[in-house]
Amino acid sequence: MTDVKELIIAIVQPLVEHPQDVKLTEHETERFMEFDLKVNPADIGRVIGKQGRIAQSIRTIVYSVKAPYAKRVRLNIVDA
């Protein structure tokens, strides 16, 4: 479980100007293990990218990792 969390943080921190503000919480739903990513409001555009391309790339990498649990992984980018 922590491997996926560490992977997300390792991908996102170099992209943002305020890496200390990167927060990642996890919770489990019936079908998914969900990770909620919060970044500094000034960095939200850097994480999402033009037309959502960076966010989609991050999700592609995270979803392709073999998770140690039976549920699928979902990454939500939370806009404060």
Score class of each variant (00 low, 15 high):
2 T>G: 08
3 D>R: 05
3 D>I: 05
3 D>H: 05
3 D>V: 03
3 D>N: 02
4 V>F: 12
5 K>F: 09
7 L>V: 06
7 L>G: 01
8 I>Q: 10
9 I>Y: 00
10 A>C: 11
11 I>Y: 10
12 V>D: 01
13 Q>V: 01
14 P>S: 13
14 P>D: 11
16 V>S: 04
16 V>R: 04
17 E>N: 12
19 P>L: 11
19 P>V: 06
19 P>H: 01
20 Q>A: 12
20 Q>D: 13
21 D>K: 11
21 D>G: 05
21 D>M: 09
21 D>W: 06
22 V>G: 01
22 V>M: 06
22 V>S: 06
23 K>V: 01
23 K>I: 00
23 K>F: 07
25 T>H: 08
25 T>F: 04
26 E>Q: 14
28 E>G: 04
29 T>M: 10
30 E>N: 13
31 R>I: 13
31 R>F: 15
31 R>V: 13
32 F>Q: 10
32 F>G: 00
33 M>N: 09
34 E>T: 15
34 E>M: 07
35 F>T: 00
35 F>S: 02
35 F>G: 02
35 F>W: 02
35 F>P: 00
36 D>K: 14
37 L>K: 02
37 L>S: 05
38 K>R: 12
38 K>L: 07
38 K>M: 15
42 A>I: 07
43 D>I: 09
43 D>S: 06
43 D>R: 09
43 D>F: 06
44 I>A: 01
46 R>I: 11
46 R>L: 15
46 R>G: 09
48 I>C: 05
50 K>E: 12
50 K>Y: 14
51 Q>N: 15
51 Q>Y: 12
52 G>D: 13
53 R>G: 09
53 R>E: 15
53 R>H: 14
53 R>L: 03
54 I>K: 15
55 A>N: 02
56 Q>Y: 13
57 S>M: 11
58 I>H: 01
58 I>K: 05
59 R>G: 07
61 I>Q: 00
61 I>E: 00
61 I>R: 08
63 Y>I: 03
66 K>F: 00
66 K>H: 01
67 A>V: 09
67 A>Q: 03
67 A>Y: 10
67 A>F: 00
68 P>D: 14
68 P>Q: 04
68 P>L: 02
68 P>S: 10
69 Y>W: 15
70 A>R: 15
70 A>E: 14
71 K>R: 15
71 K>A: 11
72 R>L: 14
73 V>Q: 09
75 L>C: 09
76 N>E: 12
77 I>S: 08
77 I>Y: 10
78 V>G: 10
80 A>S: 08
80 A>F: 01
80 A>I: 06
